[in-house]
Design a binder for these strands. Structure first.
Lengths: 149, 149
DNA sequence: TTATTATTCACCACTTTTCCCCACCAGGAG
DNA sequence: CTCCTGGTGGGGAAAAGTGGTGAATAATAA
């Protein structure tokens, strides 16, 4: 399965359109579906999945949906499915970001699209730099002691 | 089978007509039946099924409803099925919400139609935000920690 | 039964939003 | 320089959301 890597700078235009890196679009063209799956992510970003990545997520990770407490399970599913959308790039390779996801990620004008392995992530530029300073750098230093690579 | 995802804002008009998202209507058009199935749901919302989703519910021998207490199970099934209606969208893509279901979900003017996997759900806007604060956020926090995403 | 009132539903109409397409500009390669 | 690719902006056609009217049907009263 295709791995999402790399970092790309884009701008979100007044119509909430966001360019997707050509490499991702190429990969998309080789897959069955024609749309990405966009949804809210942790730490205030958005997750962007290829169809194959999305399928895998549903098949593997979400087994944990089955919990003893069905009430909580419903609550989690509601958030998960309601915030996800299918987004098909236009002829220029741009996807449309729904208003509620734009707000979730605090997207303004400068936006980052970056690979994160089994998905890509969409970040507001400022939010990313803040997050990197506060979380990524310290964590990198700390967990380095127990990582093999 | 079609997975219901995404979030859409609509208004319930004075005649209790409610728009259905175009994507759901497209899917409906590709299925055998021409009607959705609408009934009362848990936590004060309404469930909206595509024909295929509804069929699956019945085909799985109704195991979704299974409870330790069989009398309670019967009681719940009775409510679920007696309150279910077939609703066919009109030329503008709106369905008619029966008065008793409107009351069950406390629908006022601002209404949400959102995907929940094996169904879509109809929520009063205010009721959803309250539910999200009280139930969704805690569940997400709890379950999210163990998820890889 | 008939007349009258209420309700439903198909159709029409208006406004806003969406989205498809074209155009422009910048940077890099040939 | 010229061609090509990729990012960005905008205009206009089409679709979507919403409200309303009137005919057909049902319900009720005389």
């Amino acid at each position: 399965m295709a791995l999402s890597i790399g970092r790309y700078d884009y701008s979100l235009d007044p119509k909430n359109r966001l360019s997707v890196p050509p490499k991702y679009r190429e990969t998309l063209a080789q897959e069955k579906g024609r749309s990405f799956y966009l949804t809210s992510g942790m730490e205030g970003c958005l997750y962007l999945f290829l169809p194959s990545q999305w399928e895998k997520l549903l098949a593997d990770d979400l087994k944990m949906f089955s919990l003893p407490d069905k009430e909580q399970e419903r609550a989690f599913k509601r958030k998960f499915f309601s915030e996800a959308v299918e987004v098909e790039p236009d002829a220029q390779g741009r996807i449309l970001v729904p208003q509620y996801l734009k707000e979730h990620a605090g997207l303004r004008f400068d936006v980052l699209v970056q690979g994160a392995g089994n998905r890509a992530e969409v970040w507001d530029a400022k939010r990313w730099t803040d997050y990197e300073k506060k979380m990524v750098a310290p964590a990198y230093k700390k967990i380095g002691k127990s990582l093999e690579i």
